[in-house]
Design a protein around this nucleic acid. Sequence first.
DNA 1: GTACTTGTTGAACG
DNA 2: TCGTTCAACAAGTA
Length: 305
Amino acid sequence: MPELPEVESIRLGLEKVLKNKKILKVTVLNPKLISSKSPKRKANKKKTEEFIKNIQGKKIVAFKRRAKNLILELNNTNNEAGLILIHLKMTGQLVFVSHKNQKVLGGHPILESYSRDLPNKHTQIILNLENGNLFYNDVRKFGYMLYYKNLAEVIQNKHFEKLGLEPFEKKFTEKYLREKIKTKNKNLKQVLLEQTIVVGCGNIYTDEICFAAKILPQRICKTLNKLEIKSLFNNLKIIFKKAIQVGGSSVVNHKLVDGSLGNYARQHKVYGQAGQKCHTKNCPRILEKITISGRTTVFCTNCQK
DNA sequence: GTACTTGTTGAACG
DNA sequence: TCGTTCAACAAGTA
């Protein structure tokens, strides 16, 4: 499940091979993914034609990220700009295969579809570039690849507009987090998942960050004291930073793959470990599981308060 | 066969 | 008009 570190790793891995490359041809195998963000979206022939017309022939001039969204900035010789907004949701995967048959991939770690010939049954969209082909694969087809004229058009989307700060931007400070959090009458997990204060936390990293910060995810935000918020702030940054470093190896050159991919190597301390003994040294407690905001939540009642 | 999983959207509420 | 809650989307895995 790509959360911020995975998405950033994809960006880092693909930026080099995609930048300043022209999109020669676009193949939309699943028109739903380019039609809209809505879960109930329908395939639309006209939209597909427009999508192709709008990006074919343009050059990728920048590859950026905002929260868990990837943004390919485009331009052409007539100076007509545009951008492609990509969200991988739970199971999206981007794979670039160069003309020399070198692979760079990132996103959902499915070994099978990674190693299988491309395109395969999970391939939804293909961009043929000057130096190779970019495949968008998505098992559950929740993701999207949308064309926009400019960033202002993207921001018109209410949810996008309400996105909080990036964890690594300068404006994201301990004081900012404290000011925002101390008024919230909701539990910490819910608030982190909302993306409205700080972006990037999904179900997995939220539990990991709460564990590292020694705070129970069900705690009501306004009951957190200064020291706890400091711990939350520090650990959020530490965990994302570490994960990006490790996640960097999830974007691999195919020639280096020895069967064990880096993105599996993520060291989860609580996620998916309910019922097991807490990983903290000398802690005898068994990790507990509850549901918060409809999502599985795992924690240690001894290590987290 | 059935339950469970995921991030975001938008409908439905108060 | 606003905030909040929750089903929906799809398909693989246990």
